[in-house]
């Protein structure tokens, strides 16, 4: 009688162990997805601001057209790469980062050029945009940091025992964090 109770307990606990880690895997996975959504939102915000910036600059300064074209191109290229959280493979992530860092570069060049137009710099719309852009670079950095943290938590669980058994069973794959490369990690300076 007593033996059968122990047996029952043993079975129950072996069943319970992976099921507990399953729920926790799901919640870590969801946290990583949510963090990715924040990353996308922050980049989208920047993309919108750059659109406004191009409009403002175009009206005020009739300068080097190619600088503007470069920004517009880089922007459309960056927005064309939309990654869903489940599509993030190392290659896709590399492409995403590459496109965004090219946009950052084009933006920095535009800002350097805009520096030479005092009339433009003096307008309130331009100053407003500069401030928003600066803070959006902040938002991007924070969102990326949060995402990497969420991914790290999730990946740790996917790889560690005993949750790795559940992860294997239910095909929880490791997620891809942002790589810190010199181009993207450093936000372009938008201060004047």
């Amino acid at each position: 009688m007593k033996k059968s109770i122990y047996l029952l307990l043993l079975i129950a606990s072996t069943l319970l162990l992976p099921s507990c880690s399953y729920n926790s895997l799901v919640s870590h996975d969801e946290a990583a997805k949510k963090a990715w959504a924040d990353v996308e939102a922050a980049y989208q915000r920047r993309s919108d601001l750059i659109g406004n910036l191009v409009e403002t600059v175009k009206g005020e300064a009739k300068f080097e057209k190619e600088t503007l074209v470069a920004v517009v191109d880089a922007r459309s290229k960056a927005t064309s790469i939309q990654l869903k959280a489940d599509e993030i493979t190392p290659e896709n992530m590399a492409k995403f980062q590459e496109a965004q860092s090219q946009l950052s570069g084009a933006l920095s060049r535009l800002l350097v050029v805009a520096e030479q137009y005092p009339n433009l710099k003096a307008t309130e719309a331009f100053q407003n945009l500069m401030n928003e852009l600066e803070r959006t670079e902040n938002r991007i950095n924070i969102a990326r940091r949060d995402y990497n943290e969420a991914v790290q938590n999730y990946n740790t669980q996917v790889r560690s025992f005993p949750s790795n058994i559940t992860a294997n069973l239910f095909k929880f794959k490791q997620r891809e964090p942002f790589k810190a490369d010199p181009g993207t990690e450093k936000a372009p300076k938008v201060q004047f």
């Binding site: 924040d38 922050a42 401030n131 803070r135 959006t136 902040n138 938002r139 950095n141 924070i142 969102a143």
Partner: peptide, 17 residues
């Protein structure tokens, strides 16, 4: 209004100046 009850666990995303 004599004393402060404590922080609520809110978060920040980088907005401000």
């Amino acid at each position: 209004s004599s004393s402060f009850g404590g922080f609520g666990g809110g978060s920040f995303g980088g907005g401000g100046s």
